[in-house]
Amino acid sequence: MANETNPILANIFEQPAELHRVLDDLCGPHLDKVREICALMQSYDRVVLTSMGSALYSLMPMYEALVDDGWRNVELVETATLIHHPERVHHDTLYILMSRSGESREVADFAAWLDAHGHEAACVTMTPASTMATHCAHVLHDVASYDKIVCIKAYSSMALCGLFIAHMAGRTEPDATLVSALHGALDWMEANKRAILARLEEVPFLSATDCFYLISRDEGVNMARSASLWIEETAKVGANVMTADNFYHGPMELVRAQGITRTRTTPVLIDVCPDERSRMIWGYVNDAAPDSLYFGFDDSARAGARFTFPELGLDGPWMMLVEAIYFQLLSYQVALAHGVEPGMFFEDGWVVK
């Protein structure tokens, strides 16, 4: 029986209800603020999305959605890079920052620097009185409640805010069909969250895993990056990320060599944009390492444990909201399998001291 009082698991399980609340807020009280930021985006030659840590990963679905919608003047950049290279910061660019606390060192410092140098900036935050927010002219408040420890709900709620901004760019009203599909997806998450965890509890080889190798394509690679963060942060187990195609050009040897090395690598496929080549690569992976994890839409895919995503009528970047709960729960279960208390952290060095 899962310990639902554990702060990590409690926050994972609270996600669907919190996302319903955030979506209702974006469609209602804060819709004008979303429109304001969208108008700004269209008035600039270039848009840079920037943050650090979990919030950087929360920006990835927004980035993917904008690219899918044809935006070719948008970039996703770590804030530390912009701090170290101020010559890359330009007045023809709108900077959109994201941070749960608004006090993470880099985003707080960069927002202050932008303000001091006359750059216009917008931000998404759960803390509208934060250092970051006070230095941004346009602030979208994410109304979700704070996580007990690190960004679990906050990953998804801020990702939803970013996706909604991307959706509203170029339109005046939210698409009612999309909003309905999102509420339906959140209902599905609420109804199935414990069943997903129960399936993960049945995976027999998690305790023997020394590291994970997550492979995918397109927006699945950014989903894998988020999954890697949760596994490493919560379970203290390494998790590499690569496209499935590039994985075949060398790192595949990690899996093939398991009979002669001490490291037990568990391959994980997030099956986005499948074709004959990706199926061939995954077939070779399973020949070498049958203790594998599959996440995707193919209910006949080879794997040591297969998790089939539901068809919910959402495009790839939006499905990342649903996919996230699988990998957050995976990180929780891997921690337990390795004797680590989920939510145990040595420091909170990402917060301003």
Rank of each mutant, 00 (worst) to 15 (best):
A108F: 02
M242F: 12
M223K: 05
P290Q: 11
G316T: 14
E36F: 03
R277F: 13
D315N: 13
P16V: 00
L197M: 10
G102I: 00
G118E: 03
I8H: 03
E103N: 13
M320Y: 04
C38Y: 06
M168D: 02
L178E: 12
V255R: 05
L182G: 04
F346V: 11
M98W: 06
M98Q: 12
W318F: 15
D32P: 01
L160R: 00
E120V: 14
V107P: 00
K148T: 02
H249P: 08
E18C: 01
L206A: 14
A244Y: 09
H91F: 05
D298R: 08
D245L: 15
E253R: 09
R105C: 05
A235L: 09
D92C: 01
Y332T: 07
W318P: 05
T50H: 11
L66V: 04
S207F: 07
L330N: 07
T131K: 09
A305Y: 07
I231W: 06
A235K: 11
L114Y: 02
P16T: 02
M320C: 08
A195W: 03
N240D: 14
D348S: 12
V150W: 05
T261W: 06
R46H: 15
N246V: 08
M126G: 02
G53I: 01
D24W: 06
M98R: 04
H84Q: 11
R105A: 14
G70H: 09
E4P: 01
D147C: 02
F345Q: 03
N3M: 05
